[in-house]
């Protein structure tokens, strides 16, 4: 009686500043509404990510918490790399996205190694990029509109091995300069958008779910849901200004 989908919320006690729980909830419910059995597993410091997880989610935290997580994250690199090798989707939001990269350089010049799952570097910038974001995303061959809210001091630059998740039409995105937002490399996805991002962008959520459920579905399309409330909220968010 195993679950069809195991969703791992990594460090839910510490990385959850911007409604990250809403992302877990959206994936969980959208799978359950289609009849899949879902387990949500909280994994904190010193605990292992279970084998066969469909999705691993890393949220955002305060700078202090993120620093304190450094040692545990270093130990977690190989484990997550192995999971990604087996097809697990890893999603990082805001601070969690920064962790997925190779390097984070703080305002006082201290470098912290990231998980190295995405070829990206983040440096603390002057001032924070705060406000609503509108973007066009492309993920694993699907194009869709993306809305959310960003609030980050770090500026992220992608290397040639990573592709942006989206192009912003409003908002700062990765660095406020090149119009890119988020990153994708294989089954690893990062974004600065919270809000949280999945409930307001059901196409994004379903893209993640379709891939995470593919061991069960053989990669078939997911049954469509009645997304009236989500679509109205998405459309309304599109009308808002920065």
């Amino acid at each position: 009686m195993g679950a069809d989908l195991v969703i791992v919320h990594l460090y839910p006690d510490l990385l959850r500043t911007y409604g990250d729980r809403g992302n877990v909830l959206a994936l969980q419910r959208r799978a359950e509404w289609r009849g899949f059995r879902v387990d949500v597993v909280a994994v904190s410091r010193g605990e292992r990510v279970p084998r066969g997880a469909g999705v691993v989610l890393l949220g955002g935290g305060t700078d202090r918490v993120q620093e304190a997580l450094g040692p545990d994250l270093r130990d977690r690199g190989p484990e997550l790399a192995e999971a990604v090798g087996e097809g697990t989707v890893v999603l990082g939001v805001c601070g969690g996205y920064q962790f997925l990269g190779n390097l984070y350089v703080s305002a006082d010049g201290v470098s912290t190694e990231g998980l190295g799952l995405i070829e990206a570097e983040t440096r603390a910038g002057k001032g924070r990029l705060v406000g609503r974001v509108g973007a066009t995303a492309e993920l694993w061959g699907n194009r869709f509109d993306l809305v959310g809210f960003e609030n980050h001091g770090g500026r992220t630059t992608l290397g040639p091995g990573a592709r942006p998740l989206a192009r912003v039409r409003m908002g700062g995105g990765n660095n406020g300069l090149d119009g890119s937002e988020g990153a994708v490399r294989g089954s690893v996805v990062g974004t600065y958008l919270h809000g949280p991002v999945f409930p307001l962008n059901p196409q994004f959520a379903d893209g993640i779910l379709k891939r995470a459920l593919s061991p069960v579905t053989g990669g078939d399309d997911l049954q469509s849901l009645d997304d009236g409330p989500e679509e109205r909220a998405h459309e309304h968010a599109r009308t808002l200004h920065r």
Binding site: A3, H9, P12, D13, L14, L15, R16, T17, R21, V24, L25, Q28, E32, R37, V38, D39, V40, V41, A42, S44, R45, G61, T62, R64, V65, E67, A68, L69
Partner: peptide, 25 residues
């Protein structure tokens, strides 16, 4: 809760709680 099938993994309205001195939960 630790969370299981059908349950959100964490309390709804608590803050991230870590020690101000050392960062441990």
């Amino acid at each position: 809760g630790r969370g299981g099938a059908g349950a959100p993994a964490i309390a709804a309205d608590a803050e991230p709680e870590s020690c101000l001195r050392c960062g441990t939960g």
